[in-house]
Design a protein around this nucleic acid. Structure first.
Lengths: 144, 144
DNA sequence: AAATTATAGTTGCATAAGCAACTTGTTTAT
DNA sequence: ATAAACAAGTTGCTTATGCAACTATAATTT
């Protein structure tokens, strides 16, 4: 049976991703932020004002993470005063989230580090290749 | 602060990878095989005869997985008679592994499913793009 | 409008993952 | 040759993950 693990795409992708994620994780672990927590901060921080109500569910859907994992990450962020719940306007179940001032401050401290990290990686890749990569990654994700 | 999560490469990669991995995981979960166990089977199964002694450590290094995670996965595979320990020739600590007949049988049952899965994904990507992807993934992994 | 069905979020539980410390066997240094 | 340093693999422990079940609110059906 001819099966070459080294050419098996899911494996290759997984390896590359894990390497990157783990290295990046160390960056924000310095702020006691886990991967999931960083995702929440990133979604809330990247969101322009008034753009959308970022509820836990919306974040779960966007990032394709489990809602229970998110629920706990959010709980922790709220306890630490980094995220707050905005008053729900219409739906009493949903609970739109936002960064607090403290949360935004932290977000703005982490972003340059994350970007520098990305730059270190992406720096080795040509512009054309990057565009191709973007396109392929888009194609891999059917995501709704 | 301008930070666009949707264009942040580690995030994009992670999303694509998780989608693929999770879908694939369902395939071998049908055989009561976890991700880590599948990796072990794949490394052992893909290895040509006499190519290299695949010890737990060698697999850990190749796949960049934690050795304790692997230790337990291997233990389980041995208990189920899918993997066996070959006699160590020189080093009394190391314990080279191999598929049993039963293990190879299972491996050969899973491979076509995994390949079909990959094909479903890769089918949408042009050959040129695939080559580029391979190259980029290689570049992302400095690995040693 | 009462009853059913669906949705947002949380909690319980069982499993997975990974660090640190340990055991056993192997080198290296003196 | 003996002690010290090192490496392979395992075990303990803590935390992360993700499914299933639950609570509370909202929408739909009749």
């Amino acid at each position: 049976m001819n099966f070459d693990l080294d050419k098996f795409l899911p494996y290759r992708l997984s390896l590359a991703t894990n390497t990157l994620s783990q290295a990046l994780a160390k960056d924000y672990a310095a702020f006691d932020i886990t991967r999931t927590q960083w995702r929440v901060l990133a979604v809330l921080g990247a969101g322009l004002e008034g753009e959308q109500d970022w509820t836990a569910g919306a974040i779960a859907h966007k990032t394709m993470m489990d809602k229970t994992t998110l629920s706990r990450a959010i709980k922790n962020l709220i306890e630490r005063g980094l995220v707050k719940r905005k008053a729900a306007q219409d739906d009493g179940r949903a609970s739109p989230l936002a960064l607090t001032a403290k949360g935004r401050k932290l977000f703005e401290k982490i972003v340059p580090i994350a970007l520098a990290h990305e730059e270190r990686i992406v720096g080795n890749i040509s512009n054309d290749d990057l565009k191709t990569l973007e396109r392929i990654l888009g194609a891999l994700l059917v995501h709704d």
